[in-house]
Design a protein around this nucleic acid. Structure first.
Lengths: 211, 211
DNA sequence: CGCTAATCTAGAACAAGTTACAGACTTGAT
DNA sequence: ATCAAGTCTGTAACTTGTTCTAGATTAGCG
């Protein structure tokens, strides 16, 4: 889980030439930029194609649907966030605190581009089976971030369940905030509430024995 | 919270004649039926209108968008479920067990019509601000069901937060199951995991003192 | 009954995601 | 350098959600 740049981008089906990598990057940037103002609706395939300097058909060759595109955009952003978070790890004493702190930090980052967050999260939860592999990648990235914050190398099944529940809460709380049905304070409380599950699922094991 | 048929349907803006009520019902039934096979994509506005014997424009007068329609369909189904669940309350000893049992029962009900569930839940999480009031109604219904199962009349803020987290987990777990990224067993475990929060948020108060 | 406003119908029109296709351009191997 | 295969471009067409409009129906009221 440390420096694994395998599942990062394409699973390496065809190894993409340099120009292709550049196209892909232009597309993702255009997507993020359009999403940043205007949200989900503003990411229009024709506009993305034009902004990326690419034909519509090409855009669809790289990303077979708008949802695929936005989920890939999310992957991209999460990657950034993961490396950023690693530079300044959370300072809390116990795992629950650290996870809550990490998630709230991520949350504040998303607050700065609420429209982008909206587009990405809506795409993520709207994705159907055809996008499962990509959504799964996002999920694994999120799991990695949370486990990093916990400082847990070899999670028990119980801990994995807790992490999944935290992810569920994280996505869903984000959506309720983005659609104006919950305040930031409420999100914070709910994140802290769910993080208490961490203490619950590993109470007898890792009380920082200062090895 | 007992027999409140106020926020059930329309907030009573114009009181709807009998024929209008019938139209509305036909539309909701058509929606549920089309959703039941085919899921979200199969609920096409033209088809709903035709199946309900109503002009397209009329459909849009009753439900201003496909999302509104499906969220209303969900309200409808939840209402059924709530009354059904009330007939046979969960039998568990402590609140956490009862809530988990209730949710798994609801889950099994949805399993019987996975496509319908898919359409409704996707609509729910995809809904933007313009659907907030309706989504909020669904949320309140769900909260009512959970509080019912807990047997809690006057929840503390901490308990409300736990209930919200449970709802988040419920929706999100449902989605991951519907899109084939999680097994039923995993959903069950996660539901049980999150329900432990209930014990956590009201440990000093209601240990069944057999009043 | 006869009037008026609201509602409903049928159908066209528009918007954005998606697909299809003919022709130009790249790439990689010979 | 040349050829074949694969890729990209530009553009049109198709699908489905949504809007609009003109004329028929209905509801409520005197």
């Amino acid at each position: 889980m440390t420096a694994d740049n395998r599942a990062d981008h394409r699973p390496a089906s065809p190894p993409l030439t340099e120009r292709q990598e550049a196209r892909r990057r232009r597309i993702l940037n255009a997507s993020a930029q359009l999403a940043a103002r205007g949200g989900f609706d503003a990411v229009q395939m024709r506009e993305v194609a034009e902004a990326a300097g690419v034909a519509l058909g090409t855009l669809y060759r790289y990303f077979p649907s708008k949802i695929h595109l936005l989920v890939a955009t999310m992957q991209d952003q999460l990657q950034h966030m993961h490396t950023t978070l690693r530079k300044r790890p959370p300072a809390g004493a116990d795992p629950a605190e650290r996870v809550a702190e990490t998630l709230m930090r991520a949350f504040r980052a998303l607050q700065r581009e609420p429209q982008l967050a909206d587009a990405m999260v809506r795409a993520l939860t709207f994705a159907d089976r055809s996008v499962s592999p990509e959504v799964d990648t996002v999920s694994r990235l999120t799991t990695a971030i949370i486990l990093d914050a916990m400082g847990t190398e070899h999670p028990t099944p119980g801990q994995l369940s807790a992490v999944r529940v935290i992810e569920h809460t994280w996505h869903s709380a984000l959506i309720t905030w983005l659609s104006g049905r919950a305040s930031i304070a409420q999100v914070k409380i709910d994140i802290e509430t769910v993080c208490r599950l961490i203490d619950l699922t590993a109470p007898a094991r890792t009380p920082e024995p200062t090895v």
